[in-house]
């Protein structure tokens, strides 16, 4: 989904994000002009492989983004890029996710540059910014102690809501997924503005709401969404840009991350969410590396 936002935003090519398992059964409209990007850490995901075969039969070009070199998906695709994240043993994906986002960002930028849909100066600025991401992630990791304190306060919560807009929305989904996977707390990621059409009904003084509220074009809008939650006494845990003042006044807890370009925010803002789910799961006594019912490489359909 981050890739959809990136490729549409930068390269101006329409993108649809699909679950491989749904895609292969719903007779999708695919032709020779289409490119299918198959994303899988293990490169062995059975549903993804089947979806690739189907899209291939219909003449599409298949591009793989996988971590395990020489696995089945890279062999089944026309072309691809490895994520080079190194072996990931924890079942809940962390570094493989950020590596996928990194490679998809490079891909979107390369296509955008070739298509001329972004200016040279923006292209170069983004390349420069990309090179600073590892050190910004390093800084984001310094929030660990603070995240741990917050985790202790919410470890017994039964539900979590994660909100974000724009590039913050896929991050909200990833944050909610991480929490569900390893702590077994029910969590939902939602577009911040859509909250009022449903999940807002769930909010009470017991409900922790994690908001991606970094400085960007939709910052003011997110601020109003925070107020909507506050009005219903929900507890706000906000991921904010270093030096933020406005959200800090409203939120119950804030976690700072370094400022970066809007399109690269997912890579940095997901870090405190990974730490949050980790600490909550450990405090609840869960087996973080091997959560119940989950396997690393899903080779069944």
């Amino acid at each position: 989904m981050v890739a959809e936002y990136l490729i549409e935003d930068l390269a101006r090519i329409p993108v649809e994000v699909e679950y491989a398992s749904e895609f292969r059964y719903r007779n999708p409209i695919i032709s020779e002009d289409d490119v299918v990007i198959a994303i899988s850490q293990s490169g062995e995901t059975a549903d993804t492989l089947a979806a690739i075969e189907m899209a291939k039969e219909r003449g599409a070009t298949i591009f793989g983004v996988c971590n395990v070199v020489g696995s089945s998906i890279p062999r089944a695709t026309h072309a691809g890029s490895y994520t080079h994240a190194g072996p990931e043993i924890g079942v809940a994906s962390t570094k493989a996710f950020t590596a996928q986002v990194t490679v998809l960002t490079l891909m979107a930028l390369q296509i955008a540059n070739k298509r001329g849909t972004i200016t040279q100066s923006r292209f170069r600025a983004l390349l420069n910014e990309l090179e600073t991401i590892p050190s910004k992630v390093e800084i984001a990791l310094k929030s660990n102690d603070k995240v741990k304190e917050i985790s202790a306060l919410f470890k017994d919560s039964r539900n979590f809501l994660y909100l974000g807009r724009g590039y913050g929305f896929p991050v909200a989904l990833e944050g909610a997924l991480k929490l569900k996977e390893i702590s077994y707390i029910h969590a939902e990621g939602y577009p911040a503005a859509e909250m009022k059409h449903g999940p807002i009904a769930l909010i009470d003084e017991e409900m922790p709401v994690v908001v991606i509220a970094t400085k960007n074009s939709s910052y003011e809008k997110v601020v109003s969404n925070i107020q909507e939650v506050k009005a219903r006494k929900g507890k706000i845990i906000a991921i904010v840009t270093e030096g933020d003042v406005d959200v800090r006044k409203m939120a119950d807890y804030t976690i700072e991350i370094p400022e970066t370009d809007d399109i690269l925010v997912p890579l940095v803002s997901v870090i405190p969410l990974q730490l949050l789910s980790y600490h909550i799961a450990v405090m609840r006594g869960c087996n973080v590396d091997q959560p119940r019912n989950l396997a690393k490489s899903v080779t069944v359909e």
Partner: peptide, 22 residues
């Protein structure tokens, strides 16, 4: 846990996924 180790490897792994490419 491996998960914590992998979370902390990210400055390096993100760099590895860009290395030689940009």
């Amino acid at each position: 846990h491996f998960m914590m180790k992998e979370i902390y490897e990210q400055p390096r792994s993100i760099w590895d996924s860009m290395r030689g490419r940009i």
